[in-house]
């Protein structure tokens, strides 16, 4: 890979080649400047605002240091957001990986109609999260069960499983529900978050499946053949050969799914708006309301910066390691 860098430098001494070195830089400059302003400049500005007093509709750039951060961390809603983000991220990633890997392995068994099935698993990816949320909100709307159920509770009633009816996205229960002294929210799993996670898995697991399938197809058959000759069982082949070789794919998937779940916004807006209480609230939603409803621009900026830091913790090591490999 590194060889390509040598190309333009070959005749660096001549004027003509000098010009040839400038043109590519010139051509990429608009993008670089745009990114510099729209990404790094704006992030810097948001970071700055997050340390000011601008919490009304009139900008006020009085410096207050980390005061806004201190306040959001004491806020019930933000504490719930962090809890929800952690739960959502873990369940969502685990669900997508498990489902994606299972489907990929099964599809890799020389299946008739593989193309059709693959398309079916993957199509939700083409939908807007607003569409997904609108549909699943209706599916998970409990109705006045058991007397007058709707959505999925209605199906349960029809197949005689009334006992499984519950409030879905409206159930406020937090499981197991204990609250440590230093927190204002109960831990750990808000039950209403689970149906929402199921909708998110519906949207993204096909994508994970496609990644794993591509990975499985990339493993040379000879490798497996050789193992079979040596008397390895199919399970051993999977565990000792395929699974380790799929590790980079799992890493990529975790990165993609993780940054998706840390940023989730549309799905919450379309499905629950964050309720009941803050059982399904997320930092992105909180930021939107804090800024555009409560006029607290500095506080909202602080929430946004926390979101950015969470994403950066996930992404930066990944980007950095990728960069190192290529140097």
């Amino acid at each position: 890979m590194a060889r390509t860098t040598a190309l333009p430098r070959i005749r660096a001494a001549s004027r003509r080649w000098d010009w040839e070195r400038i043109i590519p830089i010139l051509m990429i400059s608009p993008s670089i400047i745009a990114i510099a302003i729209f990404v790094y400049g704006f992030i810097g500005w948001t970071g700055y605002v997050s340390m000011t007093k601008w919490n009304t509709l009139l900008p006020d750039y009085t410096w207050v240091g980390l005061e806004n951060y201190r306040r959001i961390f004491q806020d019930v809603r933000f504490q719930a957001d962090i809890r929800n983000t952690v739960v959502f991220t873990v369940v969502f990633i685990a669900g997508c990986l498990a489902l994606g890997l299972t489907l990929a392995i099964l599809l890799d068994q020389r299946i008739r109609g593989e193309n059709t099935l693959r398309s079916i698993y993957l199509f939700p990816m083409a939908l807007s999260l607003i569409v997904t949320g609108t549909i699943w909100r209706w599916i998970f709307f409990p109705g006045n069960y058991p007397a007058d159920p709707s959505g999925i509770n209605l199906i349960l009633a029809k197949v005689g499983l009334e006992g499984l009816q519950w409030g879905w996205i409206t159930d406020p229960t937090i499981w197991p529900g204990s609250r440590p002294e230093w927190l204002k929210v109960k831990l750990l799993v808000p039950l209403a978050l689970l149906p929402m996670t199921l909708a998110a898995i519906w949207q993204m697991s096909g994508f994970t499946m496609a990644m794993y399938l591509a990975g499985l197809r990339g493993i040379p058959d000879e490798l497996k053949e050789a193992a079979r000759v040596d008397g390895a069982s199919e399970w051993q082949i999977f565990r000792l050969i395929e699974l380790p070789l799929l590790r980079p794919i799992t890493l990529s998937a975790v990165i993609i799914l993780g940054h998706f779940s840390l940023k989730v916004f549309d799905l919450v807006m379309a499905m629950t708006g964050g309720g009941p209480a803050f059982a399904t609230d997320m930092p992105g939603v909180n930021m939107y309301y804090t800024v555009f409803q409560g006029n607290a621009f500095a506080k909202g900026s602080a929430i946004a910066m926390i979101m950015l830091i969470l994403v950066a913790l996930l992404i930066v090591p990944y980007l950095y390691s990728n960069r190192q490999e290529e140097m």
């Binding site: 919490n55 009304t56 019930v76 809603r77 406020p172 204002k184 109960k186 309720g275 009941p276 209480a277 803050f278 059982a279 309301y289 804090t290 409803q293 409560g294 006029n295 607290a296």
Partner: peptide
């Protein structure tokens, strides 16, 4: 003003329905 009525008041009462913590 909105800073009280459109955020804190709504958030706190929505939370109260579930946790019933009068002090909070």
């Amino acid at each position: 003003p909105d800073a009280f009525a459109a955020t804190v008041l709504l958030d706190a009462t929505l939370n109260f329905v579930v946790d019933r913590d009068i002090d909070l």
